[in-house]
Design a binder for these strands. Structure first.
Lengths: 252, 252
DNA sequence: TTGTTAGTGGCACTCAGTGCCGCTACGATT
DNA sequence: AATCGTAGCGGCACTGAGTGCCACTAACAA
């Protein structure tokens, strides 16, 4: 209260000494500390800038909003994801590309565990931040879906497959990430994600859609006999295989 | 401007005549009209209440925020979803229950096409509303995932399967809904959703996880011979079937 | 007629976010 | 070395969302 009584003589304590672009970092650090100690909503932007010793206006030069200080570099990360997808080998299976990109995103979280954990606690506690994170996750998913839509272009249910594939990858990524966060950085999340993606995206890898009654097949069509040993009934296996093999023609 | 010059004598034009709880509806209608005509952000809450002829304070008694007027009954709908899941027959396959619930949600949109379309346009144009909608959709997905987690409890990758299953259902629902909205209410979205759900959730219906090297099988194990006619190579079919039939023991 | 209560209006306030202007420190030019 | 341009910053004033509080009024009950 009383420390702000003299607006005329600016203290300017070590501002330029910290460097021009370190201000952003200093603001973020101070903000996260205050959020952790006294809560997100109870912390005003004025509290943050007072802790750093800069003007309130300066805060909004480095962050578009109070929420953005919690997710400082989401834009850059999304841009990396887009770049990665654009640079991907078109010979790779589409879902493998998306899965690998998801692994890259996971690596970003794993690279700075303490920040990821702080954010996790914050987003769990503050609804508005949770909503914000959901929205940014959705942006990843949209980018994934757009990529897959391009790769599945022309296929029977390409758009649907793209949407479901993207959502499966994102859901799997989030599941593994959440497990890792809850365990406070336990085991190899990378390997877990890879295995989980294998399970989750199994059905999306092969094309969907009803057989157009032997359209382009006929030529190189062959008869394949498979022998399966299982406890399930024959009818169950028939239904399962029928669903799984619905249109197995042009994908790898 | 000049119409607000006399604060003392309240006009009170037909307030009570419209009924006590119709005010909410009147506010929503006026808001949507203003949003459509002059844009969401350019419309202040004061504009809305002036159009209806009530005080600004009253608006916030009916809507928690300016955004909520666009999604007036999301809470009730989410409650309906929860109730439906809780009342579901435990004998039904879990994903069938969730799928049917998603169909119920779709029905809600289809029930009032003009409002759904207006909202669609608004959420497409205004980022903050889009984020809000994403967040509320995520709430559905969480409820779905929670339900599936309970049903898959104890199974190999139950939690992952629940997360992926829920996301697949939601992604499918959104895809069909979006198609319907883009076509301005064309054909039978119900049938499309049902078929799409069949495709999208095929792999999640059967349990996941690695075979425990013949644990409880042995007893009622049989040999099943399947004949498949396809254009794919034998190796492709083998890999596909192996993946699809990974653990086919207790689910129907 | 006299409480009682629910719904409302209005006022004042906090706080996020923005536009604008002035200041200052730094670098480049001559 | 003096000067100009500029980028970063502080501060002020403003808008608008959202909230707390209190007074008022209409309807209802005793």
């Amino acid at each position: 209260m009383s420390e702000a009584a003299a607006p005329a003589p600016k203290p300017r304590a070590g501002r330029t000494a910290t460097g021009r672009r370190r201000l952003r970092s200093a603001l973020a650090v101070a903000a996260l500390e205050l959020f952790a100690s006294q809560g997100y909503e109870a912390t005003t932007v004025e509290d943050i800038v007072d802790a750093v010793g800069v003007g309130r206006r300066t805060f909004f030069r480095y962050f578009r909003s109070k929420e953005e200080v919690v997710f400082p570099d989401h834009d850059e990360r999304l841009a990396e994801v887009v770049a990665r997808l654009e640079a991907a080998d078109p010979a790779e299976p589409p879902l493998a590309v998306v899965g690998a990109t998801a692994e890259m995103v996971l690596e970003m979280y794993l690279a700075e565990p303490e920040i990821s954990l702080k954010r996790f606690e914050l987003t769990r506690a503050v609804p508005s931040l949770r909503d914000k994170e959901i929205a940014s996750i959705d942006r990843y998913q949209r980018v994934f879906a757009r990529y897959l839509r391009g790769r599945y272009c022309g296929e029977p249910h390409g758009d649907l497959r793209a949407a479901v594939g993207a959502s499966a990858v994102v859901a799997t990524h989030n599941h593994i990430l959440r497990q890792w966060l809850k365990s406070a950085g336990s085991l190899d999340a990378r390997a877990q994600l890879r295995e989980a993606l294998r399970l989750a995206t199994a059905s999306v890898h092969s094309p969907w859609g009803e057989q157009p009654a032997g359209s382009e097949s006929a030529a190189d069509e062959r008869v394949v006999v498979g022998v399966v040993r299982t406890a399930a009934s024959a009818e169950t296996v028939r239904a399962r295989v029928t669903g799984a093999l619905a249109e197995l023609s042009d994908d790898q």
